[in-house]
Design a protein around this nucleic acid. Structure first.
Lengths: 328, 328
DNA sequence: TCATAGTTTGTAATCGATTACAGATTTTGG
DNA sequence: CCAAAATCTGTAATCGATTACAAACTATGA
């Protein structure tokens, strides 16, 4: 049914080696031969099989992208950057949702060992760092967004502490002294770093951080943002501004504020983090910290593919930006 | 570095055939031999290479998922369903964003011809139907959500006409007579079908559809929803209810309504379509038509894999549900 | 014209698995 | 105890490409 390289060679009256040379645009093939071969390729509708090529070259031209959940828009923006870059470099991406489940993670690590993929871009904060480090000794891996400096795997990230500092400073400069923090699990580095920035901004202006204003959610989903805000609103002395660790948490908080009849930013100012596309769709639109998600994805991909080719690569910290909109 | 089947065979003192039998859990291997082989596999940390296996079996165990954009949450929910099912059946998914760009599409079709993937789940409404039909003669393909009955490719979808009919009927029963429709490009089947349902509901209650109340957007993004709503609000005789063809358009409309100081549902009632997760996060939460996205993805995947295995499959129409929330 | 250098092409091994078939071994039953 | 049947294992071809090396061919210059 589908032609292979042998048939092309036979029909063109040349050897498979020559056909291969034509396919791969190698030099050292006369124009006459090249055209003869190309004509047959056209006639037979021949497309070289990746299966054969991949076995021979021992690569799969696939990269694994490990994310906790595809439903989180933060990751989808990064994936856009990854995909574009990967395609330009001749790779495709294999989508891997871990659900932060070690078994799923293990399964995807297996794909790498089974040569189904050439490398991993890890974006799962809940990844098993020890296993990842071990794997990184034999396979190309880079970390994107969430990372661990202790394990020797290159990463691309932003300066979370500084970004949080600037966000909270923005609130304080607007006159807010009672600034709450909706944080997530401090097991994650970004949560710890952003909290540091939050505290630094308050300290700098002589405001003592109020423990009651710091709320740790179990999960980073919308409902937990709502719930956290409910608790903060229930305080006798409630905050006048809220810095949420992610836009989704902020959107949950916003809904809760609206539901209780209060207005943003009049009664309570609100800042999110990430600049996911939905942060612009709420009413009022969220002030947020923009992460260069597309660029981060692109950079991580370039790094990974360079590693696959055997080069050394350097970790990088990218620029963020405070986007002031309607919620502050 | 990494062991292959030959090494395992040599070290275990058996032939590669036997090792292969053990790997694949074939019967007809004595317990003694099996254990001997498994011990060596363990020792060498051997993992069978998919590259070798795939070439031999002429399959890639990969399926292409064609979507216009990964940023659209409607697709991400479907992808969840696809991924879970695919994994359970031993497949992985290759993410393909077409951006509704024929060149990108063509590139992904190429992956199929080059045996990089075993089949396609097409979800892009803008796909080139003729090319898809041609491809479907030689390769397994199923359509999910958006489909074309004229081309002979199995699909999974919902009854769009009925769903729209029920949504609009719900508005009319609440007393609305001036119901607007924010539709998208009628080149897409779902847009035509949903418009039919809209008209049928109005007709049934003796309401003549007002042409001025039907707005066609160029794109289905948030901004176009805003823009459409602006136009509707600018009408001298403005609608009291709006049925938007998708949640994203509805969320755009909602923001525009809120921005102009009107209240939902008091001044204007609003219904979306899809039940994406964000439809619940707005204030007020959107009434919408739930598509069983996870199930649709799962069904499409089962169908595709059955086709890959050479079976015949039947198209299916799944159940939808009107979810009444705060916006009506 | 012919040796030599430079091009172009072909031969055959190779990547790592699966599998038809044959051969070896064990079991069964008379 | 031995032939036949059943079970287990091995040999070697195969999937479809790439590529080192050898061979054939062409061009060059004396």
């Amino acid at each position: 049914m589908v032609a292979n390289i042998q048939e092309v060679a036979r029909k063109a009256g040349v050897s498979v080696a020559t056909v291969s040379r034509v396919i791969n645009n190698y030099s050292g093939v006369t124009e006459r031969t090249r055209q003869k071969v190309e004509k047959v390729i056209e006639e037979l509708n021949y497309e070289p099989s990746m299966l054969g090529r991949n076995l021979r070259t021992l690569e799969s031209k696939l990269i694994l992208v490990l994310i906790p959940s595809i439903s989180n828009p933060f990751y989808t923006e990064i994936i856009n950057g990854i995909e574009e870059t990967a395609i330009n470099l001749g790779y495709n991406i294999l989508l891997c949702e871990t659900d932060s489940n070690p078994e799923h993670e293990q399964r995807y690590f297996g794909l790498l060992k089974k040569r189904m993929a050439d490398g991993i871009i890890s974006m799962d904060p809940a990844v098993n760092k020890a296993k990842l480090a071990e794997l990184a000794e034999s396979y190309p891996i880079v970390q994107c967004s969430e990372y661990d400096e202790d394990i020797n795997i290159p990463y691309v990230t932003i300066n979370n502490e500084l970004a949080a500092y600037q966000a909270v400073k923005h609130l304080v400069k607007l006159g807010h002294e009672k600034v709450a923090l909706i944080s997530s699990d401090e097991r994650y580095l970004y949560a710890r770093e952003r909290k540091c920035g939050y505290e630094r901004a308050l300290n700098e202006f002589g405001i003592t951080a109020n423990e009651a204003f710091i709320y740790h959610t179990e999960s980073i989903s919308f409902e937990y943002g709502q719930h956290a805000m409910r608790k903060l609103l229930d305080l006798k002395d409630r905050p006048t501004a809220v810095f949420a660790l992610s836009d989704i948490l902020a959107i949950g908080a916003l809904k809760e504020i609206n539901s209780s009849g209060l207005l943003v930013p009049k009664d309570i100012a609100l800042i999110g983090f990430d600049k996911i596309s939905f942060s612009n769709m709420t009413y009022p639109a969220l002030t947020t910290v923009a992460q260069p998600m597309f660029k981060m994805g692109a950079a991580a991909t370039n790094m990974l593919i360079n590693r696959i080719k055997g080069m050394r690569v350097e970790s990088m910290v990218m620029e963020h930006e405070l986007i002031i909109r309607e919620s502050t």
